[in-house]
Amino acid sequence: MGKIIDMINAAVLAGTPLLFGTLGEILTEKSGNLNLGVEGMMFMGGVSGFAAAYLYNISAAQQTSGLIAVIFAILGAFAAGALGALIYSFLTVTLRANQNVTGLTLTIFGTGFGNFFGEHMAISSPGGFAAVDNTVKAAFGAVDIPVLSKIPYIGKLLFSYNFMVYLSVFTALLLAWFFYRTRYGLNLRAVGENPATADAAGINVTRYKYIATTIGGGICGLGGMYVVMVTCSGVWVHNSISGLGWIAVALVIFAAWDPYRALIGSLLFGGLSIMRLYVQLGIPMQIYDMLPFVGTVIVLILTSVRQSRQRSQPKSCGTNYFREER
């Protein structure tokens, strides 16, 4: 029992960056923009969130407050992810560039951006590597809720995570509420399904696409920040995102563009990536590490084989909307 709970615990922690990435991309795709730059935006968010907390940490030194570091990290990560998405929106929505290629470029750019500034910080720091101190690390550690965290099993299962985990779940619920319960959400879905009709109904297609994509990018950025601050415990590691953004893009398909299912998907894939530590299958480590990727391939094949109309990509995804060429 204890071991299973440990495993679920680890799966949640490993699945959280995936959840952020998936949610950000769901919001983006709902507007009809297929942004393949999730990996890049996660890198940008990761390095900027880290930089914000790290630079604050250095300047405040002994007076560092965990809370302020957290706020800096969140703002930095969100802003950088949003900036990446804004470049993407400008190129695809305003300048009508190809969505696939623009997204791939964003990945190349963002990966370079992350590694470049990450290494730059490492080179400029006295020890040769950039890391935050223990106060900041503790702020990203597990929360201790009085009473609740002490309940046997349940406490560990539900009330023992860092605040980012709760933030990601809250984001999922918020997005679901937005898509299914608000008029703006309905408008956004209309834009993604059929921009011409939405346009005719008086919805400002360009504005919806810009805002949804930019906020989506910001959410992806938070996922990147999680990887650096929590998974790598506040140290910049070269190439730290290494494919998580791409799994997130695939998880969007697995989740059928639904925030609730994104919760399940990221938990499942988080589980696949940590299973090696808990379940011995007697296969070499590297083969075991393939699991999330093999799982993604299987999901891709299965979802494409049994295509269902309700659970499919927003219709206009991947194509730009030109009002003049309706």
């Binding site: 300048l95 470029t105 750019f109 990966t111 951006f113 290494e119």
Partner: peptide
């Protein structure tokens, strides 16, 4: 001591500009 990832950043920027400039060729 400028990190070598500068190559990726510059390639990314060049490609962004090239993608964007197509617009001014077509419209």
């Amino acid at each position: 001591k400028i990190p070598a990832s500068a190559a990726e950043v510059l390639t990314g920027i060049i490609l962004f500009f090239m993608l964007g400039c197509e617009f001014f060729i077509n419209y």
